[in-house]
Amino acid sequence: MSADDKYPEESGRRRFVKGVVGGATLAGLGVAGTVSVQSLTSASGIGGGPVEAMTIDRTGGPAPYGMPQVPIEIDDEGYIRGVWPEVDTEEVQGVEVEIAREELGGLQYSQEWFQYCGHQSYEGLDPNFDSDNYFKSDSAPGYDWQADVKDEGDRFHIDDFDDYEEWGNDVGNSGVGKPATATWRSEDTDNVIPVVIIRSSRMEEAAQESEWLDASTDEGVFAFVNKCTHFCCVPGYKRTGESARYNAEDRVYCQCHQSVYDPFNIVSTLYIALPRPQD
């Protein structure tokens, strides 16, 4: 397999998918170019354009970049919530607009990190959306432990992950990290923002060496938006044995077109955020 071949030979689908990806890449470039111009010259949307975000590392497959990390905090009672940036008013092209943006861990953290795959039009990305920002168990839990103890809408507590150094299922190695599937800023909305939460000793160790991770994770708990940057599918962490074919049994694997992400490697990524529609 050549260095440029994004699909393992055994997938049996490279020739077909490569054509699809090639077309998508060209289309994506066109969209990106349009977004860049619109963000500077058009009143058709708010924000958007080039943005530097912290993402889980894309390590294989056709996805162009990683999925954005959601900074987290644990409240005084032990419940886990995502950090939403402070909302401020800025003047853009002579018009005052509100945007959620703040300095965190030495970096600029912004709602624009999440403006892709249609999320830019979700109610939850309105800067002033009324949310408590807690992660809530989703309607179809991705793991047996979660299905056994959580109902839809339940919050997650740090104690839910107390066996993170031993937890395992039938996929990959045990003790790598205990996950849960959740929604964020999606109360009473038509569209939910899917999130994966993981607690791992790997992240605890990494946070000791990184100002950003020290500020955006807590007790080894971290989170990311779970929407593949390729065709906006919903990947899975330790969800299917098929992932082992692509050395992804302990990583995030998208079963649609075999994109692979390393959730324990958070990297800086430059991409084009799509503008939010105006009210």
Rank of each mutant, 00 (worst) to 15 (best):
residue 102 E to R: 00
residue 124 G to S: 04
residue 67 M to S: 02
residue 134 Y to V: 03
residue 203 M to K: 02
residue 43 A to E: 13
residue 62 P to S: 10
residue 247 N to Y: 13
residue 96 E to G: 03
residue 159 D to S: 07
residue 192 V to P: 04
residue 246 Y to D: 15
residue 14 R to S: 15
residue 213 L to N: 02
residue 173 N to R: 14
residue 188 D to G: 09
residue 197 I to N: 07
residue 119 H to W: 05
residue 43 A to I: 00
residue 195 V to G: 03
residue 110 S to Q: 06
residue 275 P to W: 00
residue 267 V to D: 09
residue 144 D to K: 15
residue 153 G to N: 04
residue 192 V to N: 09
residue 1 M to P: 00
residue 147 A to N: 13
residue 206 A to F: 00
residue 27 A to L: 15
residue 121 S to P: 05
residue 268 S to I: 03
residue 154 D to Y: 13
residue 133 N to H: 13
residue 30 G to S: 12
residue 80 I to K: 14
residue 58 R to E: 14
residue 114 F to S: 04
residue 90 E to M: 11
residue 46 I to S: 05
residue 256 C to T: 11
residue 44 S to W: 08
residue 228 C to I: 03
residue 125 L to P: 02
residue 33 G to L: 07
residue 76 D to V: 00
residue 106 G to S: 11
residue 71 P to Y: 08
residue 213 L to C: 10
residue 57 D to R: 15
residue 114 F to C: 05
residue 168 G to I: 04
residue 258 Q to E: 11
residue 32 A to H: 01
residue 91 E to Y: 04
residue 16 F to N: 10
residue 212 W to Y: 14
residue 232 C to A: 06
residue 179 P to N: 05
residue 125 L to Q: 15
residue 64 P to E: 05
residue 121 S to Q: 09
residue 86 E to K: 15
residue 29 L to K: 13
residue 102 E to N: 03
residue 218 D to I: 04
residue 199 R to S: 09
residue 205 E to V: 02
residue 29 L to R: 12
residue 234 V to N: 12
residue 77 E to N: 13
residue 258 Q to L: 14
residue 70 V to W: 09
residue 48 G to D: 02
residue 101 R to V: 11
residue 211 E to N: 13
residue 26 L to N: 05
residue 51 V to I: 14
residue 29 L to P: 05
residue 205 E to K: 06
residue 223 A to P: 14
residue 234 V to A: 12
residue 209 E to H: 14
residue 163 D to S: 03
residue 279 D to Q: 11
residue 108 Q to D: 10
residue 57 D to T: 14
residue 208 Q to A: 15
residue 37 V to P: 00
residue 266 I to E: 15
residue 85 P to F: 03
residue 76 D to H: 02
residue 51 V to H: 02
residue 44 S to T: 13
residue 223 A to L: 12
residue 99 I to H: 11
residue 152 E to L: 14
residue 176 V to E: 13
residue 78 G to I: 08
residue 250 D to F: 09
residue 235 P to Q: 01
residue 124 G to C: 11
residue 91 E to K: 11
residue 254 C to R: 01
residue 157 H to Q: 01
residue 161 F to W: 02
residue 129 F to M: 04
residue 113 W to M: 03
residue 164 Y to E: 06
residue 250 D to W: 11
residue 182 A to Y: 01
residue 47 G to M: 09
residue 220 G to D: 00
residue 160 D to Y: 00
residue 226 N to R: 14
residue 6 K to W: 15
residue 72 I to P: 04
residue 120 Q to K: 03
residue 86 E to I: 04
residue 215 A to C: 02
residue 264 F to A: 01
residue 76 D to A: 12
residue 115 Q to V: 01
residue 276 R to D: 01
residue 147 A to V: 06
residue 198 I to N: 08
residue 197 I to R: 08
residue 249 E to I: 06
residue 152 E to H: 12
residue 85 P to Q: 12
residue 40 L to W: 00
residue 72 I to K: 10
residue 1 M to H: 07
